[in-house]
Design a protein around this nucleic acid. Structure first.
Length: 276
DNA sequence: ATGACTAGGTCACCTAGA
């Protein structure tokens, strides 16, 4: 099973890029962020024609998340409120469409578009911290459900210095400040692991390159698009790929897709004698 | 170099992104 995440920066502008990439990378399930379109205008027809079912939570101009899947998407949950009924902050944060999850082929796929935060100390930064704190409460409930969990998205956080092209200049600033890193780390607990780091310890691997400053040509990027796996799914992880070539196309999104491959079945500890 | 580029909405530049 191949699961991917991609901030497309407008699904309508990126529609042909997306269709081409779905065809070549053939993911089974995808979390999209920044669709930037209200649900009635979401290009559901062309995606269904390409073989993907859609679960969407969008809004005009900003934000917007979606799930695509070849297999049925069951038990779709939109917003934090779906697992935090009566939580007024969860309800308020739900005005921005940034959270969607679905049950796909035995996996709870949770797709997130974490707020950017603008500038450390700003009102938007406080919103980002409050949002991450709400995510922590949401995950507390999610964990109680006992479902296999894969949490993907644009986290807008370089969690460690090796995820930044210039840590000496960028560390401590927006997307790399101590408080937001701690807030995300608190969400991860001791069970959720960054799939990319299961395979690659080195720096120099990015998923986002600023449109400005010729960041792509200079390969000055950040690794802010992540897939997190719970302990059960970590056992099934085979590889994690950043589809960097998508950032090099004409009129690209500023983010590249990232995918993981999961083996079809868990290694079975009780039957290790078949092959040996 | 407190910038740079891109997308959406609305209609000339503004907000927002990260």
């Amino acid at each position: 099973m191949r699961i991917a995440t991609w901030n497309v920066n407008s699904i309508r502008t990126r529609q042909s890029h997306l269709l081409g990439w779905l065809n070549s990378a053939a993911p089974d399930a995808v979390g999209l962020q920044e669709t930037k379109v209200e649900d009635s205008l979401f290009p559901r027809d062309v995606l269904e024609a390409a073989g993907y079912r859609c679960a969407i939570s969008g809004q005009k101009s900003y934000n917007g998340v979606a799930l695509l899947s070849r297999e049925p998407i069951e038990d779709v949950r939109i917003g934090f409120s779906a697992l935090l009924p009566g939580d007024s902050e969860a309800e308020n944060l739900g005005e921005q469409r940034r959270v969607i999850s679905g049950w796909i082929d035995g996996v709870r796929l949770l797709n997130l578009y974490v707020p950017n935060g603008s500038e450390v100390g700003s009102e938007k930064y406080q919103y980002k911290l409050a949002w991450l704190n709400c995510l922590r409460r949401y995950l507390d409930v999610q964990r109680q459900q006992g479902e296999a969990l894969c949490m993907v998205g644009d986290f807008n956080i370089g969690l460690e210095d090796r995820d930044l092209h210039n840590p000496s200049r960028l560390s401590g600033g927006i997307m790399a400040s101590e408080l937001e890193r701690e807030a995300l780390q608190a969400c991860l607990g001791d069970d959720l692991r960054d799939a990319f780091r299961l395979f690659e310890p080195d720096s120099g691997h990015w998923s986002w390159w600023d449109y400005r400053s010729a960041a792509w040509d200079r390969d000055r990027g950040w690794r802010i698009d992540h897939l997190y796996l719970d302990e059960e799914l970590q056992q099934r992880a085979l590889r994690c790929i950043i589809h960097k070539e998508e950032r090099g196309r004409e009129k690209p999104s500023d983010h590249a897709p990232v995918s993981i491959d999961l083996s079809d079945e868990l290694p079975d500890a009780d039957s290790g004698d078949e092959l040996w």
